[in-house]
Design a protein around this nucleic acid. Structure first.
Lengths: 247, 247
DNA sequence: CAGTGGTCTAGACCACATC
DNA sequence: ATGTGGTCTAGACCACTGT
């Protein structure tokens, strides 16, 4: 295979399907294909990387297993957008007054341009003097607050959100990031802890002080693995239920 | 391919690699290979199922992805024992007085032969009149209790544990199940909820009444997918930390 | 050394989506 | 009808494990 096909840092001792997988990830991270566009066909990629169909398929199957792309017979191979909505719903089971599972509505309460604390600055790999956009957000069901969210974004990366009217933010953040700032969230890491409600939590979430509160910290990454959003979400632990499979 | 190779219920419209995967799972569930024994080689399985190596590998790769088997170059393919110890440690981060990560010691406090309540009976697929073995267990670090566990087992399946002296139970349950009852835990589902400590929790775990307590319900299954153990574990939520990747 | 799984080839034919 | 991915073949050679 032509070594020129690969990034300079590629370790050519690795199997070819690994090299191809890494190269495709790099190209996706570079924005060569967006979630709407199909990747080249198997035949084209085989030709470009000078490998047989079996080797190429193995590379792409890795990406499918990692959740980076999806394939559909007859249509093609597409960069996958992670399904975040289903994620928090695995933690918090929200129901409307009628008992229907429902998605909470998001509303921005406050926006400020501030220097983040060190933990957030490190998590977002920001320079010491760099400023961030801090959003306070609440999520409601039947107009009742069920989640409190604090969001931090690097000012440089999300400049458009520093001036956008709060009414134009809409219900969901990640489509907004794509629309206004061309930032695509590709994956995230969430860490869950339990705390006892303080005065603010109690007032905002309508629970007793000291009652258990779930806290979820999330760092969202783009396709290159660069952290782009830091978020912490709090909700009453009542009715919270999380399920895992062990194998 | 010879249809006689497969179970009567197999749907022959499925891809061959799926049929082979299902057949191998069935044979593993039947105890044809235990975690120590290697499965037949690729060449033998190709011959037995009358498929080419590529198709057989796809079947086995499914099992690897599901965590049912592991493969080692030069050694063979082996039925995998799930790594449970790492599971609860992903939830509770235990440290000894010296700050070292450590595995708590298990001690059985009580054993009784009782009819289980309906929820447990249903979870374990037991007959209405069937009796269960109920174990109360505590797990200790530096002689301090950190987890309370209640375990239910079907009496018929775990008969040897009804009479075994409590001192012979040892530290870990799943090796005991294998040793004394030939029951191998192959997978499990855990559900996590948060509660407030009641009097019993507070006394047993040395926390305040009303403080948050993590409750993990676990149903453990054998290779055939039959539920064999119902377990609920409670521990103080302080220091509890759980992490997920989202893609 | 023999035996195992790991990588790779160069095709074939099928099922599905779209025009 | 054309183009896509899905399934499958019948090998080859390599890398690792154990004797």
């Amino acid at each position: 295979m032509n070594t020129a096909s690969f990034h300079a840092n590629a370790d050519l001792r690795l199997p070819r399907y690994q090299l191809i997988r890494d190269d495709l990830v790099r190209r996706i991270a570079n924005g060569e294909w967006t979630p709407e566009q199909a990747l080249p066909t198997e035949a084209d990629l085989c030709e470009a990387y000078v490998v047989s169909i079996g080797t190429l398929r193995k590379a792409i199957e890795l990406l499918v297993a990692e959740g980076v792309v999806t394939r559909t017979q007859g249509k093609g191979t597409f960069v996958r957008r992670p399904r975040f909505d289903s994620s928090l719903f695995r933690f918090f089971r929200f129901k409307s007054a009628e008992g229907q599972a429902v998605q909470p509505i998001g509303r921005i309460l406050k926006r400020e341009i501030v220097k983040p604390n060190k933990a957030i600055r490190d998590a977002l790999q920001m320079e010491p003097t760099e400023k961030s956009i801090h959003l306070s957000r609440v999520r409601l069901i039947d107009s009742k607050p069920v989640l409190r969210e604090e969001i931090w974004l690097a000012r440089l990366r999300f400049d458009a959100l520093a001036t956008l009217p709060l009414d134009d933010f809409g219900n969901l953040m990640y489509p907004l990031y794509e629309r206004a700032c061309r930032q695509i969230v590709a994956s995230a890491t969430e860490t869950l802890t339990v705390e006892q409600a303080n005065q603010e939590d109690a007032a905002a979430l309508h629970v007793d002080v000291g009652s258990p509160v779930i806290m979820v910290n999330r760092v969202a990454l783009d396709f290159a693995g660069t952290p782009i959003e830091w978020r912490t979400t709090r909700g009453a632990a009542t009715g919270f239920q999380y399920q895992v499979e062990i194998r």
